[in-house]
Amino acid sequence: MIYYVGSFLLIAIGLYAVIVKKNLIKILIGLNLIASGVNLLIISVGYIKGGTAPIFSRAGLNAKMMVDPIPQALTLTAIVIDASELALAVAFVVLLYRHYKTLDIKKIRSLKW
């Protein structure tokens, strides 16, 4: 249960950072926190009390007492995609800084909305 609370709080903190902060790097940190929180939430949905990891590496492991493998597979691919997209986002931020000489989104005209 505490895992649910932790991941909800991580999502809330990330959302707050994305909305309120004006620095571009802080916004990216908020996005990363949201992604981590969602990963933790998905993994903790698949957990079973007293379960073991879904790997038949030792004898005597019972398939009934294993945790759900599908959330783990989904999260595994999501983490790699997060990293590559954040690299792309950091490249965009570096180019924006070179063009506008600032990281403040209030001063970058073409990002206003």
Binding site: Y3, P54, I55, A63, I70, A73
Partner: peptide, 30 residues
């Protein structure tokens, strides 16, 4: 938290070794 798994996950756990031959079920799902 920590109650039941999904039906698909149960199916993969029960039949994964016979169908794919991999010991790590996460690998066979991925």
């Amino acid at each position: 938290f920590g109650a039941n798994k999904m039906a698909v996950g149960t199916y993969y756990l029960n039949h994964g070794v016979a169908q794919t031959g991999a010991a790590n079920i996460v690998t066979s799902v991925v």
